[in-house]
Amino acid sequence: MTGAVTWGLVVSSLAVIVVRRRSLAIALVAAQSLGLGLYAVTQGSHTSTALAVTGTVLIAKALVLPALLFFTVRRARKERLIATELPALGRLAISVAAALAIEQLIPRFGLTGAGTEHAAVAVLALGILTAVVRRAVLFQALGFLIAENGIYLAGLSLPGGLPVFIELGLVFDLVVIVSVAAAFAAKIHEQLGSGDSSLLEALRD
């Protein structure tokens, strides 16, 4: 795994935590999936069919799911600034600190490169942190894709890749989950006039 790919994934994940525009965040996640897909295809063509499948799947992920989320954004164009959200620098600081802590907690687990292992865990953690520090439901849905890209990064580093059945099943599940999340995002926007998830706090004991 090249350093450019792993660093690209980590930096784009951090960028999603910082950027204000939803369309830019979607483009960043699409680029992330595309980069991983192209890497897998170039590697897979001369190592194993599993990697080629991974690449094809990731390219589909880079086109289909972002298109679905762009469609959701278009339906809810007027997005207000979300007042309850931390400033960008605060979000970045919290995310970097938490991701570094999590990455330090997980020991080496047997991938070929230590850097890839660290990057995979960091990207997964950043996906979860995106949902924690961003209040907009669409950003939280993007967190799913980032977290899954972290898992894919680790899967690509396995000698034979992940089993094809798991690869295809993962993408199917991801399409279902992101479609449902997009439907929720649209409905929440329709009901609240905003995609701010902090407005969804009526259910407490």
Binding site: F184, K187, L200, A202, L203
Partner: peptide
Amino acid sequence: RNALEAGW
């Protein structure tokens, strides 16, 4: 609204 919150 509550159901959307719970589902989300």
